[in-house]
């Protein structure tokens, strides 16, 4: 199978999975937008209405953070199970094990496109204007996608080797929810050095902050920092592709016998 066929297969698997998924629900494709909105609503009720958050324009701030964070967590959590859930197919054909997490990530990307559209409507409806800084959304979305691909490949590999890692993946995404500035702003910290440290150590916090900087403040992100995250996670993704290819038959044995 050549690269074009492989990409076409990943795309077809993702589209078919979306179709199958939508057919299970009464509201079908509406859930692509409805589910993230309900997540935002839950956070809004807790932090704005109950905890009386004082942050200006908190709803938009929360939506930008939460809607981009959900893209990451859902993709990584679903990819984590993607290989072990494909035992039927793995038992019948010597297929590349990268197919399963990558098709899951692609599925998440297609859903996220409609979420980004919703975000655009919310931003424009709340008086935010499209500025020249929005051009930075292109490299930012690409880097965000690379981060998701790399983390999805790592989680899918670990869970296929030892299923217990599924607990760690789930806990890890909850940990990231609290430390990535979804419902709080790293820039509001009293010590600017602490802000810099969080944005440096947590790539997801940097990416979410970059979305807010571009969309809400009209400010371009630190290009070198963005490039560094893209390159680092790009290398991790390539390394994981090699690991999954080299251990393809061992993964099949683990999935089918444990």
């Amino acid at each position: 199978m050549n690269l074009t066929q492989y990409i076409s297969l990943v795309d077809t698997m993702a589209r078919m999975s979306l179709k199958a998924d939508a057919s299970r629900y009464f509201f079908g494709y509406i859930w692509w937008v409805l589910e993230p909105l309900l997540y935002v609503l839950v956070f809004y009720v807790v932090f704005e209405l109950i905890l009386q958050n004082r942050k200006e324009d908190f709803l938009v701030f929360l939506m930008v953070g939460k809607l981009t964070f959900i893209w990451f967590t859902k993709s990584v959590n679903q990819s984590a199970r993607s290989i072990v859930n494909s035992g039927g197919l793995i038992s019948k054909a010597n297929v590349s094990k990268t197919l399963f997490p990558l098709a899951t990530v692609q599925e998440g990307l297609y859903k996220q496109l409609s979420v980004f559209l919703l975000l655009l409507v919310v931003l424009l409806g709340n008086g935010y204007a499209i500025t020249s800084a929005w051009v930075w959304l292109i490299p930012l979305v690409v880097v965000n996608y690379i981060v998701i691909v790399a983390c999805s490949l790592v989680s899918a590999f670990l869970v296929s080797m030892v299923f217990d890692f599924i607990v760690m993946v789930s806990l890890g995404t909850i940990f990231l929810l609290f430390v990535s500035g979804i419902f709080w702003d790293p820039r509001d910290l009293a010590d600017p050095a602490a802000t810099d440290l969080i944005l440096l150590l947590n790539p997801l916090a940097f990416v979410i902050d970059a979305y807010r900087q571009i969309l809400m403040a009209g400010v371009a992100p630190d290009a070198w920092h963005l490039l560094g995250i893209g390159a680092g996670f790009g290398l991790l993704a390539l390394g994981m592709v090699l690991v999954l290819r080299r251990s393809s038959q061992f993964i099949a044995l683990k999935v089918l016998t444990s």
């Binding site: 076409s8 019948k92 054909a93």
Partner: peptide, 23 residues
Amino acid sequence: LGFQPQLSGRDNALLSAMLRGYS
């Protein structure tokens, strides 16, 4: 190969053929 019960026979046949190496 790769059949999903929610999908039509046509979609499953398409997916199955692609998993067998067809473009």
